[in-house]
Amino acid sequence: MSVQKVQMEISTAPFLKDVATTPKIMWLVIYTLIPILLVSVYYFGISALLISLTAVLSCVFTEWLFNFSNDPIKTLKDGSAIITGLLLALTLPPGFPLWMVFIGGVVAIGMGKSMWGGLGQNIFNPALLGRAFLQAAFPTAITTWSSPGGSFLSLKGTNTALPFFQGQNIDAFSGATPLAQMKFQHIGTDTLALLMGNTGGSLGETCGLLLILSGIYLLAKKIINWRIPVSILLTVVVISGIFYLIDRQIYPTPLFMLLSGGLLLGTVYMATDLVTSPLTPKGIWIYGVGIGVLVVLIRIWGGLPEGVMYAILLMNAATPLINRYAKIRTYGHLK
């Protein structure tokens, strides 16, 4: 081809671009959530599937609704609404009424994201905000747990309750999670069960092993910052270790603290939310240690058995402040 024909667009350097794009990052996270969802379906049957589907549809629908005026397809393509939907579902109990799930999704995207101006603008992790809303609005339903097992097709709890009704509980028993048993009755749970997920709990939090593997994968792909899981988990181990050494009768082992409840799910998928965590290394350490301390304190002294959600939301709220103060020193600006 002759040189004259080359189209000379005006644009400026750099002309090379790294392969990672925001949609690619989001979809990679979605792929890692699929095995977790499958294990959940294995333990909790079709209920897990229905809740996830409802949550994702609700999130995607809300995202579409809020972006109706400006290119909804583009906003959906980045996959972040799907992530929010999946994460919300994974924090819910298997027997949760589907209509409540739907509302949770609307709140997660509507109040957790769109209200702030969409992707990247929000302060709180949308899925956790949706979950917090559900906890406040439906305190009974959200602490009603079903044990794993049963046939695939049998629905758990009150999945099919009609809108605005709580539904009749079939197989549910309140407070049956390992953390609740520990807190209220000082009964421990076998480590193997915690690792494999054969315990009561929300859809995605029970299988510790899979969450650890996902976390390692996301770390290897450099999607999440290593400082976040390291700072949170280390803090939890140290603080709960101190409590454990003080009184072995009352306080659980650090290992139990690590593997039970939503700590791993929250650490790998929610605390690491890029948008709502600090930017600088120093800031991330403050954030992670903050979450770790809050988790242990809420679990041990709070009125609730679980504190991961509030710990992360509180540190989300502190993130703008952390970003302001935990600055990095510019090269050549020596003290």
Partner: peptide, 11 residues
């Protein structure tokens, strides 16, 4: 490359 919002990934 299509431009998306900053996701504060810190890269």
């Amino acid at each position: 490359f299509q431009e998306y919002s900053c996701i504060r990934c810190g890269r």
